[in-house]
Amino acid sequence: MKSDAYMDMVRSAQKRPEFWRLFVILAVGLVVGLFATPLFFLTIGAADPALNAINVDASGMPRVGVTPGGLFVVLAGFAILVVATVITAERLTARSLRDITGPSALMRRDFWATLKWLSGLLVVLLILPSGGDPAQVSVQYGFSQWLFWVPFAVIGLMVQVLAEELFFRGYFQTQITGATKSYVFGVVGSAALFGVGHVSPVADGLAGYFPVLWAICFGVVAGDLTMRSGTIGPAVAIHLVNNFAAMMFAPHKDVFSGFGMWVSTANLEDLYSDPMIMIYEFAFLAVTWLAARVAIRR
């Protein structure tokens, strides 16, 4: 189902639909992800060691965002992608911010409607068993200390999810659709690119590709919600709730764990190859997608 507002977004992409522009957009994303953002991390970390985004453990393995300051820097660094996306959309494809977000009033309405439904759903789902060994989860912060970090986490997460949805769904997905005249190619193409960026840096073999498969499925869900809404609002909301759940409760101790009330010490290769974990993760995604559709009534 494609809303009228989404068709307007696609029409704005068709003003300059040449395929070579898609490769330029990809190049911009790569430059931001591989050069500009790491440079930002190094600069901030050099100014204050407490804000180091990447630490190295005793075995020489990188640990990403394992302190509150470090994780906040990781998330805040996505602001670079926001700026790059807006500038590229305007200069390369003559598209305004509204063209890649959808109507602002509709975006806000669908964002809040989706967020309210998913927040309630998250409370229920967190109570349900998700697999894994409870003995491999340890307390990182007391409740009051964790609450202190929650506002910083929400601000950082909003920057991150807004940046990714703006680039992947609002801009790249609609630009692919405008170039190919295929709504399916738009959703699947942007989802595939989104998934490639989620190869696990700390898991080898087949387990390293489970996050990729899950991210591709997430991209399809977010793309579908963007088509139905005609804005990136619901996709931002579902992305925010998903990342909040992943980072705030029991993240793995080596990856984005700086804000977690608990941390998991389990082997990531074991987790990503555990059928119960896989079932839970995909079920969580399916249920949140259905809840988001109910929230926006499309």
Rank of each mutant, 00 (worst) to 15 (best):
residue 4 D to K: 10
residue 6 Y to Q: 13
residue 8 D to G: 14
residue 8 D to S: 14
residue 12 S to K: 07
residue 14 Q to W: 10
residue 20 W to P: 00
residue 21 R to N: 00
residue 22 L to M: 00
residue 23 F to V: 04
residue 23 F to Y: 03
residue 24 V to M: 00
residue 33 G to Y: 03
residue 40 F to W: 06
residue 40 F to I: 02
residue 43 T to N: 00
residue 44 I to A: 01
residue 44 I to N: 02
residue 46 A to M: 02
residue 46 A to D: 02
residue 47 A to K: 02
residue 49 P to R: 03
residue 50 A to F: 00
residue 53 A to L: 12
residue 54 I to A: 01
residue 54 I to H: 02
residue 56 V to N: 10
residue 60 G to Y: 13
residue 60 G to D: 05
residue 61 M to C: 06
residue 65 G to S: 06
residue 65 G to V: 15
residue 66 V to L: 05
residue 66 V to W: 02
residue 70 G to V: 13
residue 70 G to F: 06
residue 70 G to A: 07
residue 71 L to V: 06
residue 71 L to A: 08
residue 72 F to D: 04
residue 73 V to F: 08
residue 77 G to H: 08
residue 82 V to E: 05
residue 88 T to C: 04
residue 92 L to I: 05
residue 92 L to S: 09
residue 92 L to D: 07
residue 93 T to A: 14
residue 94 A to S: 15
residue 99 D to V: 09
residue 99 D to H: 07
residue 100 I to S: 07
residue 102 G to E: 13
residue 102 G to H: 10
residue 104 S to H: 11
residue 107 M to I: 01
residue 108 R to G: 04
residue 116 K to W: 12
residue 117 W to N: 03
residue 119 S to E: 07
residue 119 S to T: 08
residue 120 G to H: 09
residue 122 L to M: 13
residue 139 V to R: 10
residue 142 G to Y: 01
residue 144 S to A: 13
residue 147 L to N: 02
residue 149 W to H: 12
residue 150 V to S: 01
residue 151 P to G: 03
residue 151 P to Y: 06
residue 151 P to V: 07
residue 153 A to E: 11
residue 156 G to T: 09
residue 158 M to K: 01
residue 160 Q to K: 15
residue 161 V to P: 12
residue 164 E to Y: 06
residue 166 L to K: 11
residue 166 L to R: 09
residue 173 Q to F: 15
residue 174 T to C: 11
residue 175 Q to Y: 10
residue 176 I to F: 05
residue 181 K to N: 15
residue 182 S to T: 07
residue 184 V to L: 08
residue 185 F to C: 12
residue 189 G to D: 03
residue 192 A to C: 15
residue 198 H to D: 06
residue 203 A to V: 11
residue 204 D to A: 08
residue 205 G to R: 06
residue 207 A to Q: 05
residue 211 P to F: 00
residue 216 I to G: 10
residue 218 F to S: 12
residue 218 F to I: 07
residue 222 A to G: 06
residue 232 I to C: 03
residue 237 A to F: 03
residue 238 I to F: 02
residue 240 L to I: 10
residue 246 A to W: 15
residue 251 P to S: 09
residue 252 H to W: 08
residue 253 K to I: 15
residue 255 V to E: 06
residue 258 G to P: 13
residue 264 S to V: 10
residue 264 S to R: 05
residue 267 N to Y: 00
residue 268 L to Q: 15
residue 269 E to H: 14
residue 269 E to T: 07
residue 270 D to G: 14
residue 274 D to P: 06
residue 274 D to W: 04
residue 275 P to K: 14
residue 278 M to S: 14
residue 280 Y to M: 10
residue 281 E to D: 09
residue 284 F to R: 10
residue 285 L to A: 11
residue 292 A to E: 00
residue 298 R to W: 01
